[in-house]
Amino acid sequence: MDAPPVPDSVALIEARGLTKTFGNHVAVDGISFEVRRGEAFGFLGPNGAGKTSTMKMIGCTSPPGGGALRVIGMDPIAQASEIKRRIGVVPQTDNLDIELTVRENLEMYGRYFDVPREVAAARIDELIEFVQLSEKMTSRVEPLSGGMKRRLTIARALVNQPDLLLLDEPTTGLDPQARHLVWDRLYRLKQRGVTLVITTHYMDEAEQLCDRLVVMDKAKIVAEGSPRELITRHSTREVVELRLADDARDQLSASIDGLVDRVEWLPDRVLLYTETGDGILTEIHDRGVRTDSALVRRGTLEDVFLTITGRSLIE
């Protein structure tokens, strides 16, 4: 039985003060956010930030510990099964049925969702095509590459034609080529109107895929906005990365005052936050600071995270 359609105006996910504790360890500490229909929403944060715990509460496989949560307008405890019918889940670690073939994995999952057989058969053909596994259709899952397994997991999450797709670190551990393929497929899903919720600790992934995101750290949301907004608000348009000998560091520190918005002294390099990277670099060189290497780049979400928490995203 299908749940009633949800009006477009209603947020697909709505969390207010959402909390999760394990024993006396607080994994998610009173976070609030809203995911709107059709958008790609991200949770960016380092290991242990509470991303997976949050995703599991949204996916109704872990009961919320406190606060309010609505998913597709429904209650994740009382209406867990109806919610699950309308969402797809790509977990952090693949949990494919390695004793079954690629196709059987999808068929079995279709059965779990009560998709009628003939409907499932046609849909599975399409999905296998979509994730480019046609050649592996009858292969067992075990020998597939990491990228293939990930794509199969994504196909499996689509077997019930979900309105909402939850992806927990969809590309962690994949090589660049495999990552781009996954990104491309996710982009297409979004074009088709599927709402995506993605966790990641890669800022480039968040920038590529997310319309809006929250930055999580130590169980809390520490920033929220579109990637551009976050960079504008918490970082600068450009960043100059310098590698310096010790005496050059002292020299820089003496002459940098007032020149840039902010300076970050990291053990291996120095970051200068500014709107005009090239101009600053010329200015520094004019003042006689000798740099071992210098790079002007755009501000990134990594810089945002560093600014807010004083630590880098990937330890």
């Binding site: 699950k84 019918r85 977990p91 949990n95 390695i98 999952y109 969702f113 009560d114 499996r156």
Partner: peptide
């Protein structure tokens, strides 16, 4: 080890 049950629980199977 394989976490098949987690996969099942993401569906309406309880």
């Amino acid at each position: 080890w394989q976490r098949n049950y987690d996969a099942m629980l993401a569906s309406p199977v309880g």
